[in-house]
């Protein structure tokens, strides 16, 4: 039993992509993938420590009413776990300290950034960047090309040059607290995915860069490479028929490019955490 890769996808309060995320992780080879409503964690019936891979899926936590994922971050930071005297955030810190993996997609990425989990340059889980309104002030659904940084410590993007995925957000523009934060992100290769042209060169041009994100940043990791967040949706492209042009591009492989990120995670867990 100990050889099983175990993943958890948190649901509830406006998380929307939990089912397709769980499907992607299963396809990638994880043996156990549980969709767990947050109330189960807060009631203490399910424990984070039983898993290797925490997934914060896309959606609109609390409607993004206080800014994307803000109210959700507040809940995770302050909500107590029944009967334990601890907060969910304590469990989360332990999970990170144990060297396990966290991946946040879209709203899950916003949540990680606003909780200070990413980019976490100083190891203190302090918020140093944010994701805010797209430059055009609108929600948009469109597919984007993403250049991966080959020198990044990110374990999810190992071996990838670039991927093609959909973005579906209104608040995806990354803004850093200071020039220094941006400089650190770049020099430490934490800005692992960048909005790009079709030939995978990073761009600030709309619509290839759909939101005006600083330095075209679409995804971040922490220095361990085990915490990773991105605005585009890898779980939305795990099969050929999810590609917007599969009816005209005959050479598309059966697996979608988004699946690669999950396969890397499962491989890493199998090699390093089991």
């Amino acid at each position: 039993m100990s050889k099983q890769v175990k993943a958890i996808v948190i649901a509830g309060n406006g998380t929307n992509c939990e089912r397709e995320t769980a499907h992607a992780i299963r396809l990638a080879g994880a043996e156990v993938v549980d969709i767990v409503h947050i109330s189960e964690l807060l009631a203490g019936r399910v424990c984070l420590s039983d898993y290797h891979f925490l997934n914060l899926a896309g959606g609109f936590l609390d409607g993004d009413d206080l800014g994307s994922a803000k109210a959700g971050a507040n809940r995770l930071l302050h909500a107590p776990v029944a009967g334990s005297g601890e907060h969910l955030s304590d469990h989360l810190r332990q999970f990170i300290a144990d060297g396990k993996l966290i991946m946040g997609v879209c709203n899950g990425f916003q949540l990680m950034v606003k909780m200070g989990l990413l980019p976490d340059l100083d190891g203190e889980l302090r918020q140093s960047a944010t994701l805010t309104f797209n430059d055009n002030g609108r929600f948009e659904d469109r597919w984007v090309y993403l250049k991966a940084d080959a020198e990044s410590p990110c374990i999810f993007t190992r071996g990838l040059d670039g991927v093609y995925l959909p973005v579906r957000h209104g608040e995806g523009k990354l803004v850093a607290e200071s020039e220094q934060v941006l400089a650190d992100l770049e020099s430490r290769h934490l800005s692992v995915l960048k909005y790009s042209t079709k030939d995978f060169s990073p761009t600030m041009e709309y619509p290839a860069n759909p939101n005006g994100s600083l330095a075209a940043i679409a995804g971040l990791c922490d220095e361990t490479g085990r915490l990773f967040g991105l605005m585009p949706h890898p779980e939305a492209y795990v099969h050929r028929t999810q590609h917007p042009r599969w009816t005209r591009e005959d050479d598309l492989p059966e697996d979608g490019m988004g699946l690669w990120l999950y396969q890397n995670a499962v491989k890493f867990i199998r090699e390093e955490l089991l």
Partner: peptide, 20 residues
């Protein structure tokens, strides 16, 4: 069309906008 998320749930295999 772009203001509507037409792909959440990951099941939309023919999308409202198509072509090259």
């Amino acid at each position: 069309v772009r203001r509507y998320d037409h792909e959440v749930q990951g099941a939309t295999v023919l999308k409202p906008l198509v072509g090259v």
